[in-house]
Simulated assay, not measured.
Amino acid sequence: MTASPVDPIEAYVGADTAVISAEQRDQIAERWGLDDPPLQRLGAWAGQVVQGDLGTSVVFGEPVVDVIADRFVASLALLALAWVFSGVLGFVMGLVAGVHHGRPLDRVLSWWAYTLASAPTFWIGLLLLYVFAVQLQWAPVCCAAPIGSLPGEVTLLERLHHLALPALTLSVIGISPVMLHTRQSTIEVLSSDHVTFARSQGEKGTGLVLHRVARNAAGPALMLQFASIGELIGGAVLAEQVFTYPGLGQATTTAALRQDVPLLMGVALFTALLVFLGNSLGDLTHRAVAPHAREGVR
């Protein structure tokens, strides 16, 4: 951030810095420690973090903890909806593709997954925005609620209406990895000895897939789904910017563009904690669903 070409004082003022005097510039720099060497600023920040203080946001003028809490609450519904949708749809599509391995349906689903995995999040968001908001006018263009409405006046249906396109954009980036890993796990399970034995006992079709394949394929899918929380948050930065959604992702972009170092560092710590929790939950869930994973660790 200190190597950025953005002038932090100009970003703080938000207007032409020629209208402020040299004394005012010095006061702003002293207030935020902008004249201190980078290592000194980092040390001061680390000392505050040890004491439980993440500092004050330059842009919002509030404690970083409060800004993150308010914005994360706004993003939570978006992230949760996209996370659930991508996991469920990716797992089901992976099962279908694995069961039809080598057939046209498998090729179509795999091609679709690789295409989505290669597409940038902001491009998908712009495409969905153009089709469903501009052309078809089925969805709103921006924001988390109708423009001009007070928070208490917004209905649940209106919130879901504004949430649909951003959540769909975010879920798309999570479908592909879950689907491809589930597909591969399904293919391996179908070729295993216990499935061959079950087939010799007369099991087949949907019953075989649900009782013999789904649980074994669910372990890797769940672990990957929990581990994808970091990518989901990263995608939210772009998706919320495209749809002007007032969440944690948009706050991160604002902090980067306006040299709000305390807020950006606080967001980095917060997201690192979420990724750590996601990876830990994924590992525990994998061991619970697939008992052989515990045996492998021993």
Rank of each mutant, 00 (worst) to 15 (best):
A97T: 07
V96I: 15
V154P: 05
W112N: 10
P104C: 13
R103K: 10
H100I: 01
V172W: 08
M179R: 12
S149G: 00
H181P: 00
L109H: 10
A167V: 09
A133L: 04
G152H: 07
L136D: 05
L116W: 09
L89R: 11
W111Q: 04
V108D: 11
V141T: 13
L180W: 13
V96C: 03
H161M: 02
A119Y: 12
R159L: 14
P151S: 12
H161Y: 10
L126Q: 09
L129K: 09
M179N: 08
V134F: 12
A139Y: 06
H101N: 14
P104E: 11
V99G: 00
R107Q: 14
C143V: 09
W123V: 14
T115C: 13
V154Q: 08
I147S: 04
L78Y: 02
I175R: 01
L157D: 13
A145Y: 00
A80V: 15
R159G: 11
S118T: 13
A164K: 01
W123I: 13
T169Q: 06
E153N: 15
A119V: 12
L128M: 10
F132K: 05
L160P: 00
I173L: 15
A113H: 00
S118R: 06
L116G: 06
E158C: 01
A113P: 04
S171Y: 00
V92I: 15
A145D: 02
A144V: 09
L126Y: 12
T155C: 14
L81P: 03
L95D: 00
Y114C: 03
A117I: 02
H100P: 00
L78M: 06
L168S: 05
P104I: 14
V99H: 13
C143I: 08
R183Y: 05
V108Q: 07
V131Y: 12
L136H: 11
A82I: 07
A113T: 05
V178L: 14
V134R: 06
S110L: 06
V92M: 13
G148P: 01
S118L: 11
L160W: 09
P120A: 10
L163K: 01
P120T: 08
A113S: 07
G148Y: 06
F122S: 11
L160Y: 09
A119S: 10
E158T: 05
H162K: 07
G152C: 09
W111Y: 11
V178S: 09
I124P: 02
S86P: 01
S110R: 04
P140L: 07
L156C: 01
G174Q: 05
I173E: 12
G125H: 07
V131L: 15
Y130F: 15
L79D: 06
A80P: 01
I147Y: 14
V88C: 08
S86K: 08
S110I: 09
F122M: 14
L109D: 06
D106S: 09
R183F: 06
V108I: 15
L89V: 15
V88Y: 10
A113Y: 10
Y130N: 08
F85Y: 07
A77V: 04
L105M: 11
V108S: 12
T121W: 03
R183N: 08
S171N: 01
A113N: 05
W83I: 11
W111M: 12
E158N: 03
R107P: 00
V84S: 01
S110P: 00
L128I: 04
V96K: 00
P104W: 13
T155S: 15
